[in-house]
Design a protein around this nucleic acid. Structure first.
Lengths: 120, 120
DNA sequence: CTTGTATTCAACTACTTGGTTGAGTACACT
DNA sequence: AGTGTACTCAACCAAGTAGTTGAATACAAG
């Protein structure tokens, strides 16, 4: 499915479905950054990070500026509002089952990237 | 990135990044359904829907039963809790910019699949 | 004007995805 | 047993994705 013609919600979710991109967003939540800064934590080429950035930009989650040879990126979380709203319609399907919720929150927060991404 | 080795959060977001799959989830939020029922609104083969169902199942969003020759699917929204929690960490980045929020919510709700999916 | 730095572009590779069709499996019904 | 119904599997295809490397662009600073 060419993401160019994907609906906005699909594009947002697709953009978020990658740990590197979520990491980039986490970094940007602490302020604007250049590609170099953003690439630093990852063992991949500059160009690869640049591509991830483009995906985020196409999803509207990131806007880019211009400062000399730098193209600083900054967070724009607005598209997440729609994603959040969509998911929240299903909240009642897990909220009455706290065991499952707990399960997911803990395994996910531990095993994954969530806290690492936040680097907090 | 083979989704088999993706972290749970990525798998959840990836599963949600497709309108057909979101439609299936919406349908299942009204109760369990067979593959036939689920396939009915779509102009694609049975097998294609069966595949989407497998993606949802691998993401833990859907569980399957067995009833004679039927394999009824039912919603398990628990994995969405983690996705929702992740997104919510970015809430402050759009909540103070209500214009942008409004923009996204309205264009998305209109242009897309969200309400159609809910068929409400 | 040449060089260095930051970033993107283009071409390529390996793999995934979303769909197809046709055959196979599992069960119910007569 | 034989047929119909519900679904999955396997093989395939076209297109997309995530990464690579090397060349190109844009600017700053000697």
């Amino acid at each position: 499915m060419r993401s160019a013609e994907l609906d906005p919600l699909s594009r947002t979710f697709a953009a978020l479905a990658d740990p590197t991109r979520r990491g980039i967003l986490a970094r940007l939540s602490r302020g604007p950054a250049n590609v170099g800064d953003l690439a630093e934590p990852y063992e991949m080429s500059f160009a690869a990070v640049s591509k991830h950035l483009r995906v985020l930009q196409d999803a509207g989650l990131v806007t880019r500026g211009r400062d000399a040879q730098y193209r600083p990126a900054m967070l724009d979380a607005a598209p997440m509002a729609a994603a959040s709203a969509w998911i929240d319609d299903y909240r009642r399907f897990w909220e009455h089952s706290f065991a499952a919720l707990d399960d997911y929150l803990t395994t996910t927060r531990n095993a994954t990237t969530h806290n690492e991404e936040q680097e907090s």
